[in-house]
Structure formats: C-alpha cells, structure tokens
Design a binder for these strands. Structure first.
Lengths: 163, 163
DNA sequence: GTAGTTGCAAATTGTTTGCAAGCCT
DNA sequence: AGGCTTGCAAACAATTTGCAACTAC
C-alpha cells in the first residue's frame, strides 16, 4: 500500500510505515487506540521518556486518509468507537465478522451470499444497493467453555460486571 | 410498553410517555437528538422560555433504560452516533435497514434469511450465534433521480460538500 | 414517605482542527 | 525549497455522572 500512497503524491514516513505494518499484521479490525499501542510498543501514558512516540492524532489522521483513499474500511461493533481494517481489495475475498460479546474477539468469515437478497431488494425498493455490512454476535467457543461472570452491556456498549 | 415499565417497578412520567410515543410513531430508528426534538416541538437552543423542555440527559437515560430492558435496540449506521428503535418483540417481524448515503433515509426490509448461514457458521467456528445485524447501503430512488452535488464521507461519517 | 426521576453542571471519551515546526522528495 | 506531515494544545461532539430538587406511587 506504500506504493499507492506514493503514486497519489502522499509521503512515506516512519509513522505511516509502522501503521501500515500494524494493519497488515492482523486480521482483526483495530481501534485507533490499538493501532496507537501497536506502533508505540513501550508507551506509557504520561511518559516523558518516549521521544519516539507516534501521536494519537497522527493515527486518526492517517486512518482517515486510508479510508478516503479506499485502502482501509471502517467498521463498528457497537463499542462506542470505530475499528479499521484493510479493504477487501487489499486482503482478498469479501468477508464479514463474528463478534464475541464476552471477550470482544472478532473473527472473519466468508460466504455471506447476499446476492439474491440485494437483487430482490433493488427491485422491491428502487434503491441502488452499493455495499452491505453484516455482523454476527454471539459467544466464542473459548468463552462458552469458560463462562465469565454474568455481564450485560451498558448503554455505552462497554461490558461491565453486574453486582 | 408503559405496562412493562410499571411491572418492573419503574415509574411512568410525562417525559417517558412522550419518548415512548415518539418511538412508536415512526418506523425509522431515531437518534437522541431527533428524539429530543420530537418531544420538544418548540425548543430552540438557548431558549429561556421553554419551561417544559425535556432534557437531553433524560433522553439518553431513558433510551439506555429501554435498551437494558430489551424493549428498544440500538443501531448504528456509521454516522458517529447511535439510533434507537423498538425491539422486534414490540413491533413485529425481524427486519434490517437500507440506508441512503445521500439523504440518510433509512428504510426497513424483511426477509434477510440468514438461518442457513448462521447454522453453517456455528458448525464451522464453534461460536454460539445469538443475533446479527445487517445494513445495506446505497442510493434511494429519489436521490437516484435527483442527484445531489458530489459528496464524500469525512472520517467522522458526516457528509460534506466537496469544493 | 420514599425510592425512582429529572435537570443542571461538569466530567469523560472519541475524534477533529489550528498552527508552527519538521521532514520527505 | 516547498509542500505534505507531525505533534501539541485546544476545540468539538456524543454520552455519562454527581447531586440536589422533585414527583409518581
């Protein structure tokens, strides 16, 4: 993706290289905070030493740039913030996500097969349908075996223990 | 839904009645701002006169309560805020949404037919799948005929005109 | 009367913007 | 050199929380 950046007149810098690597090294969509942590391995909040820190703002700005360029897509799982992952043009076939509501793990899956549905709906509704987003929510095999203390989702989508 | 509230030991107040009415009167998922506007017909920001204003915080709190009670569900369309609509247990059959990326209109549709997919994936992944969320994005018939000035989505998901 | 509710102000959290300094090409 | 980038501080927007006053039951 460095090449695409360059070709479009954007510059290749150390922060951008690090961020692209972080995005390439995982299959899970990453939040800005996670990206920030990935590219700042030894960053501690309020740390005066970390000269080399890549700023959070830089992460936001570059993530947005990648989305505008169509290299990355933004997804959301009701957690109160966005997550970013490479576009399918960069990674391979069309996919969606299953999210574990207990540990928040996100897994990809393929074969959503919504062709028939979208065609039917274009006829029924008159919409031109351009894309779709599908998320499945449930409990992953690990959490099924290892049930956490009873939890519920607060309004913010964060999970908290119930007393 | 007033009955359910009462049965659970919650109180029925004027703001709550108004909010439930607003939710019942539309099929589109409403944002907190929209709910607030619905229940405060003649509210102008900074208006000293509006004695009877229902506070935004009250809207947030009640929306969250309804979600916790399972009477309302929270959906999101990448707009930077949540929207709320009555749960399917309250309104009828299972449905999803088509969103127009030009005018932001949201339309319901039925018959998503993901039974087969979820069963297959429960086998493949070991997840117990509890629910799913599907959004289709495109352009509605009105906007297809009446194309707006070229727009793009900013990082925040708000739509702005391109110079 | 008492616990559930509301409004107001203030705090939080996620994200964006203005601007001067710095760095890729 | 010159414009794209970065960092820092500050601004913004959505949402939550503390607390005293209020009200449904």
């Amino acid at each position: 993706m460095l090449g695409v950046l360059k070709d479009d007149g954007y510059r290749v810098t150390a922060p951008r290289r690090a961020l692209l690597r972080a995005l390439a090294e995982t299959t899970e969509p990453l939040s800005v905070q996670e990206l920030h942590a990935q590219v700042n391995p030894d960053y501690k909040p309020g740390d005066e030493e970390s000269e080399e820190e890549i700023n959070l703002v830089t992460v936001y700005r570059f993530a947005n740039l990648l989305v505008e360029m169509g290299l990355v897509r933004r997804v959301e799982f009701g957690q109160g913030y966005y997550r970013y992952e490479r576009e399918e043009s960069q990674t391979g076939p069309h996919h969606h996500h299953i999210v574990c509501r207990q540990c928040n793990r996100v897994e990809d899956f393929h074969g959503c097969d919504l062709q028939g549905l979208t065609e039917r709906l274009e006829g029924d509704t008159g919409f031109r349908i351009e894309r779709h987003q599908l998320e499945l929510y449930g409990v992953c095999p690990q959490c099924l075996e290892n049930p956490a203390p009873d939890t519920r989702r607060t309004s913010g989508g964060r999970t908290v223990a119930v007393e």
